[in-house]
Design a protein around this nucleic acid. Structure first.
Lengths: 131, 131, 131, 131
DNA sequence: GTGGTCTAGACCACT
DNA sequence: GTGGTCTAGACCACC
């Protein structure tokens, strides 16, 4: 049972973004490993009852980011070389979100402990446990 | 030395948003206190070499949020009554930012400890110390 | 003790407006009756510690509206002919405020009973009792 | 027949405010339901013969208030989750409008009964019947 | 095609 | 002088 995605058409985040995020997570969690084949554009589109172009776009962007690779005529596969981001790159991507969170928290007069506690809870939700 | 703002026109975050964030912080830090007058729309625009409409938009949104107040023909002033929010309201406003942070952190394969450490650092930057 | 006004300089409503409203009310309530003399511009300004121009402006607008009358060299007096507004005029002035109230109440999902009850309370605050 | 708005350019209330009020009402009355698409900024501007920026401003403020939501590249849609306010919050938002109404009514020498009757009428106009 | 931002400049009302 | 509104037109990002 490879890749069970759940799409909500009513959401404000576009479908192709939902696909991208879910596939990235599936790969990250190791439920699909390097070399595994993804469902074909058409089959996934049919299963999720969405436009094949939308799936194609998600696959395309994932390929551009090096998460998956296309093999002409065969389909898309999880990339063999795992994407390695530099520490700096990863921090740079996280920074604005961290900034937004803390700035809003400060404005709302949350204490440092409140924010930290809320973060722990949300991390657990995402399966990220402290060591 | 009233309200030294720094605007980067090259940034992806729009100018009016940069203004809003900086003014919110200045008020939060107490460098401008209730009743203090802000620079006039036109003078600030001239100083930052941006369009007065852009400043007006930032001021307008801050006023809608209750951070500052306008007095016709006199200018903008830091709001006298500080906004009071309910616990539920505050959590509801923080939630999407927390969600965005952790979801991106998971995608980037950060450990729970990494995120927590980064949060602590940013909290300190904002003057929020753990008790 | 004629005309005890209370001015709040911190308020967002300009001082001259506060003066106008308070004097209108005092006349309306009959605490100053037609022919009564108002404090001189300079004495009232001194008492309230505000700019004489502000008092002059308030008096001027009240005179323009026919609430008070100036007698050259003698001072300002409550108008002898009481302003008579037509029913239509008065309703026209109240209408937009009524519209604003009910429209916001509807948006906030208040019941008709809630709004009516809140109105009764506020009317009592202003000394307007139902017959 | 989607969203018939009527704009009066002669009115003292700004166009963008008229738009906001009318759209709020249309949503409230259920003539547009959650998920429904609003006319595009440019098409509505063209239809009403006003500047697109004016429509954009109205849409933008409605979005900030959570009445509608924007989906990049797709358009504006009636918000799916209806805003939930606390009792205290709702009363706080209604208070200044109530104050304005009663204060003006007192100034115009309306009786408590007059104001109450006028309120009942307007409430009925908005479909709010007393229980 | 859609919304989002910014500029330039005009006119008004208020103080 | 101040803020408030509106117009005209440009450029970008996203879908």
């Amino acid at each position: 049972m490879p890749l069970d995605c759940r799409i909500s058409t009513g959401s404000t985040t576009p479908i192709y973004r939902q696909l991208i995020d879910q596939i990235r997570l599936v790969v990250l969690r190791g439920r699909l490993t390097p070399g595994d084949r993804l469902p074909s554009v058409r089959s996934l589109a049919q299963r999720l009852v969405i436009n094949p172009n939308t799936v194609a776009r998600a696959y395309g962007e994932l390929a551009r980011d090096g998460v998956i690779e296309s093999q002409q005529g065969k389909g898309y596969f999880v990339a063999t070389k795992r994407q390695v981001y530099t520490r700096a790159h990863r921090r740079r991507r996280l920074a604005p979100l961290l900034e937004a969170l803390v700035s809003e928290a400060a404005l709302l007069d949350f204490s440092a402990d409140d924010v930290t506690a809320a973060l722990q809870e949300k991390l657990r939700e995402y399966g990220l446990e402290p060591s």
